[in-house]
Simulated assay, not measured.
Amino acid sequence: MSSDLDYAVGTSPTEPVAANRVRQLSGLREWMQNCIDRYESEVAGFESNKPRGRTYVAESVRYQSGTGLAQTGSAPNFFGGVWSLATCKKGMRGEPTKSDAANPNHPFQRLFREPDEKGVRRPKYPVFILTCASRNSSYDKPEWADSHRNWLASAAMITHGFDEMEDYGQYLRRTFEGEAVRHRFTHASHRTPLAENRGDCHVDDMGSVRYPPAGHQHGDGDMDAECGCSTEAGPQPEDHIDNSPHHVKCVSEPEYWLGWTNPRFALRPDEEFNQGHPKSKGFAKLLERFEPVGEDT
């Protein structure tokens, strides 16, 4: 069942027209290469420009009739044209299981440089995260679709990584304004209902890390976590798994990600049961799991 807080994935990017134009895998590959070239030209060089990728299914992203591909949870977060993955898929991003110690050599951790003086971890390689929607048959599907599919909801090249939640918060406040900030901070004094339930930065006005609020899907209230994440709290706010320094909190700035409201790609049928977050190296491996879909394919 949809909520007033659900929102369409493709309504926030600064390049929605570009997303609509990308209808073939060759076009998606070209867009990815353009991101790599732009980053190396305007930001920093890579140790190697061969892309590394992760593909995963977000249980909180689903197709809704009248809305399209919609986010019902907190991550990925698309507010204000900024893509972020800070509160879900923590194991994919380096968080150890309860029985394991922190692992700085986790495969995802190794994709990033050490933090700079502001806590920013720049990627060593072009790192793309491709997020797909749930194919749960209880959800809606497009009228033209014969079956429920893992539709590709967003493709993001990571521009910034952070270990510490407070560093992520400081970056957001010094870099953005409007919805990108207003709907993300769960403990801001003037937080919005979206921030309290769907925000991904548990930092207050003073810059202190806080527990997810009770009204948040990862909080200790009555809300259900649409993503299936653990909501178990530790003795200190820093101990809550959302705030753990052992998983890289990822950001893709405007022009480095695309989001689709209407599905254009989906995991191939033979890949739909290959869940988890498979690692890919190179464009061919990253994109071979997908196929174009839609009325005009």
Results as ranks from 00 to 15, higher is better:
K285S: 12
S252I: 06
F283K: 01
R289E: 09
E271D: 07
L286M: 11
T261L: 03
N274W: 11
D270N: 04
R268M: 12
S280L: 03
L287D: 02
Y256F: 15
W260L: 12
E255M: 14
K285V: 00
A266M: 07
R264L: 08
E253S: 05
P263I: 09
P269A: 06
G282S: 06
E288N: 06
K285N: 13
K279Y: 13
K285A: 15
E271F: 05
F273K: 12
K281S: 14
H277G: 00
E255R: 15
D270V: 07
E272D: 02
P254H: 12
K279M: 11
E255H: 15
E288A: 04
Y256N: 07
K281Y: 11
K281A: 03
S252L: 04
R264S: 10
R289L: 03
L287P: 03
L287V: 00
F283C: 00
G282L: 00
L258M: 10
N274S: 07
E288V: 04
K281F: 10
D270G: 04
H277Y: 15
L267Q: 14
N274V: 08
R268Y: 08
R264K: 15
E255D: 13
G282I: 07
L286S: 01
R268A: 12
Y256Q: 14
N262T: 15
G276T: 02
R264C: 06
G282Y: 00
L287M: 02
G259W: 13
P278C: 12
G282V: 01
L286A: 01
L287I: 01
R289I: 11
R289G: 11
A266P: 02
E253K: 02
L287H: 01
A266T: 09
R264T: 10
L267W: 02
W260F: 13
E271M: 14
A284Y: 00
W257D: 08
P278D: 09
E271K: 10
G282Q: 03
W257T: 08
A266L: 02
T261H: 10
E253V: 12
A284Q: 01
N262E: 15
G282E: 01
F283Q: 02
